[in-house]
């Protein structure tokens, strides 16, 4: 649904959204929030116009760790409850994308496979195109790249090894293109 045709938020909705998203550095017009949203970290979080954050059942987490890290969410994105976005470098979500409940986008594994587990490995930015549908419990790990109008099925795990081309459907673990 294009952001321009979305119903306008009421004054109360706008005020509560402004309070709940006070940790964001930029928030577009008619952004709406239900329930709880946690915006942590020292980085920048930018939300486009007409973003809907539905945290009524479970909270939504937007975590930009370092001062240089950024989370950019495009216009008209719908985020369901339990979604967690963690950025060390950058996570970008294109316009009109739908993020299902408990989906997780992270651009860092936070622990190396081998060696000292408390040392943070290098990050690779996560990019999600426009009009993408991400199913519930899907995982986009460091370096994931999803093209425009693609579909990620529920529970799929997308890594840097599988760039999802525009319009494709990815499912399973390890993920394959249908």
């Amino acid at each position: 649904m294009p952001a321009t045709t979305a119903p306008r938020a009421t004054l109360l909705e706008r005020l509560s959204a402004r309070w709940k998203l006070r940790g964001c550095s930029e928030v577009g017009g008619s952004t709406r929030v239900r329930g709880r949203v946690w915006v942590h970290g020292r980085g920048t979080v930018r939300l486009g116009a007409g973003v809907m954050l539905d945290g009524a059942h479970h909270p939504i987490e937007l975590h930009a760790l370092d001062p240089s890290s950024e989370i950019v969410i495009g216009d008209g994105v719908f985020i369901e409850g339990g979604t967690s976005i963690e950025a060390v470098v950058s996570v970008r979500v294109g316009a009109r994308t739908h993020l299902g409940s408990f989906s997780r986008l992270m651009d860092n594994h936070f622990h190396p496979l081998v060696g000292d587990r408390h040392w943070r490995p290098a990050s690779a930015p996560v990019t999600v195109g426009e009009d993408v549908e991400i199913g519930p419990r899907a995982l986009l790990l460091s370096g994931a790249n999803v093209g425009n109008a693609a579909t990620i099925r529920a529970g799929a795990v997308i890594t840097r090894r599988l760039p999802v081309p525009p319009g494709a459907t990815a499912c399973g673990l390890p993920a394959v293109i249908e």
Partner: peptide, 10 residues
């Protein structure tokens, strides 16, 4: 590979 030689150091 290499994990046994380089154990996790907590």
């Amino acid at each position: 590979t290499g994990a046994e030689r380089d154990p996790p150091n907590h």
